[in-house]
């Protein structure tokens, strides 16, 4: 497809541990079209961040291996790229916002110095003077709705609040033009009011710059607000994918249904039942469906065989034997 920007095909990512390989990402398929906003939803530890860090190849290669799969960015496989080609993608095409703004900023450099480094090494402003780069940084800081940008640029991360730091991280991701933004739970470390501001800001900026967005989140509510299409991920598998409207109208996979149950509602009814149990052991995962041990509608076949992905309608796919 010409319109596809990023196409992840059957990607597997394993972590080396003393007990053996932890098979965290287990053959996922995911694509993002140009200008599309995609949500990737799943609980903590299901491999969302691992998948996205693999896209930029920033995982420690001594610990993480990719035994199988392709990550096609504009039809070129990122996993097979030479160092220089990969650097080009990192500098000019894809940026990623980390979920922990405090950890994502280097404590011993000013915010300004860190933003300036990104501008300088992106190689898109080679003929810019230092003051022109600085005014670009100031402009970007203003874009993320920070008053008094000059003062902020001269501040160190520990002098800023969490929400401020997350805005800085967004500014870093947007300071040079890029085609794809990966936002890894950008609101998680913040309180709800700030979270909401950050999400709105992110949506506005991405739409303004006509970028593609992959929004990683553990909340279906956030994904609903920010994305055109949603992937639901469980324990290293994509269990369901659909257009946002379709998914909320007609959720199919038992895990998706469970996630929707989990959303706390303001009109009471107490805490929902949620999904019983935990994410499986990645070193010895269940032979069949990875959701089988927690699934309320598990069948005999689920224990032994992996459910194939079936298309329910054109854009709606689900990996479950119930719909086989």
């Amino acid at each position: 497809m010409e319109n596809t920007l990023l196409d992840i095909k059957n990607l597997k990512v394993w972590y080396r541990t003393y007990k053996g390989y932890a098979k965290v990402v287990d053959g996922i398929n995911l694509f993002v079209n140009k200008g599309e906003k995609v949500g990737l939803v799943g609980e903590s530890g299901c491999g969302k961040t691992t998948t996205m860090k693999t896209v930029l190849r920033v995982l420690d290669s001594k610990v993480a291996t990719v035994p199988e799969g392709e990550i096609l960015f504009k039809n070129r496989d990122i996993l097979k790229m030479k160092y220089n080609e990969l650097q080009q993608v990192r500098k000019q095409s894809i940026s990623m916002i980390s979920q922990e703004p405090t950890a994502a900023l280097n404590p011993v450099f000013t915010v300004g110095s860190q933003i300036m480094d990104i501008i300088r090494y992106s190689e898109q402003y080679k003929d810019y003077s230092k003051s022109e780069m600085l005014s670009l940084a100031v402009k970007t800081i203003k874009d993320v709705l920070i008053p008094d940008p000059e003062r902020i640029l001269n501040s160190y991360p520990h002098q800023l609040s969490g929400g401020m730091k997350q805005r800085i991280c967004i500014a870093m991701a947007l300071v040079t033009p890029r085609e794809l933004l990966i936002a890894d739970e950008p609101g998680t470390a913040l309180d709800v009011t700030v979270q909401d501001q950050i999400h709105k800001l992110l949506k506005a900026l991405v739409e303004e710059k006509k970028m593609s967005l992959i929004m990683i989140t553990h909340s279906l509510g956030v994904a609903r607000e920010l994305s055109d299409r949603i992937y639901v991920m469980y324990a290293g598998n994509i269990v369901e994918v659909a257009q946002t409207k379709e998914l909320f109208k007609n959720p199919l996979h038992p895990y998706t249904l469970g996630l929707m149950e989990c959303v706390p509602r303001l009109y009471g009814g107490g805490i929902s039942e949620g999904i019983y149990g935990y994410i499986p052991d990645y070193i010895n995962p269940p032979a069949g469906c990875r959701f089988y041990p927690r699934c309320p509608s598990a069948m005999e076949i689920c224990e032994k065989e992996k459910p194939p992905t079936v298309s329910v309608s054109e854009d709606h796919k689900v990996a479950c034997f119930k719909y086989h």
Binding site: S95, A103, N106, P107, I118, Y121
Partner: peptide, 14 residues
């Protein structure tokens, strides 16, 4: 292994 190093690596700094 700190996050801020993985961040600058992701931005393609040499």
């Amino acid at each position: 292994n700190k996050e801020y190093i993985s961040v600058v690596t992701g931005y393609g700094l040499p």
